[in-house]
């Protein structure tokens, strides 16, 4: 990775932080490309007992793409927010591809970490999650965004609050609600 690209991305990131919406649009494809490359690498060397952690990839991308001496934590949050959106696309696209490759319908089953949904719903379905998020985006876009940031970007409550310009308290409240909502949606899908 050339250092000029790093400084460019860092610069764009600082613009994003200033509230420049177009900077966000410019940054997304760069992050997306990098993340997809990383994910593909990871999946090629799939090891049986390794789990793919989207946030780990996002971190890796962050290290590669951003000059960390030159950004504050808010910029980092914004980078992760962008990455989460990219990550979601990558994972969902991948799942769709493979589902299409197989005969017939049925959702590809994946396993989410138990902490995601709570112990009653250890198993989830990435595409079911995607469906649910799409549905949620219609009902409450902000909640859908919170889920995206937290699930796919691994953002903390404080970071979500920064990115979405909300108070920590409201993020927490929304999170409480959406957790229950998702559990319900996903549990319906996984009940055998």
């Amino acid at each position: 990775m050339q250092s000029d690209e790093v400084s460019r991305i860092t610069g764009i990131l600082n613009e994003v932080k200033q509230g420049d919406r177009s900077a966000w649009e410019r940054l997304l494809p760069m992050v997306y490309g990098e993340l997809r490359q990383l994910a593909a690498q990871f999946l090629r060397h799939e090891r049986n007992n390794h789990t793919l952690q989207p946030t780990a990839l996002v971190h890796e991308a962050f290290m590669k793409l951003v000059d960390q001496t030159n950004v504050d934590w808010q910029s980092r949050a914004h980078f992760f927010a962008i990455s989460s959106q990219a990550m979601r696309r990558i994972l969902v696209d991948h799942a769709r591809q493979h589902q299409a490759a197989k005969r017939g319908g049925g959702h590809k089953r994946i396993v989410l970490d138990e902490n995601l949904i709570g112990e009653t719903q250890r198993a989830g379905n990435l595409l079911a999650l995607e469906d649910a998020l799409t549905k949620l985006a219609e009902l409450d876009p902000r909640q859908a965004k919170i889920v995206e940031l937290r699930f796919f970007g691994g953002l903390s409550v404080a970071e979500v609050a920064e990115v979405l310009d909300m108070s920590k308290r409201s993020v927490e409240r929304e999170w409480t609600m959406v957790r229950s909502w998702l559990r319900r949606e996903l549990s319906d899908g996984t009940t055998p």
Partner: peptide, 12 residues
């Protein structure tokens, strides 16, 4: 935040 982990094979 507890980070969701995806089993690698979901994509394979």
């Amino acid at each position: 935040v507890k980070i969701p982990r995806f089993v690698p094979k979901i994509l394979s």
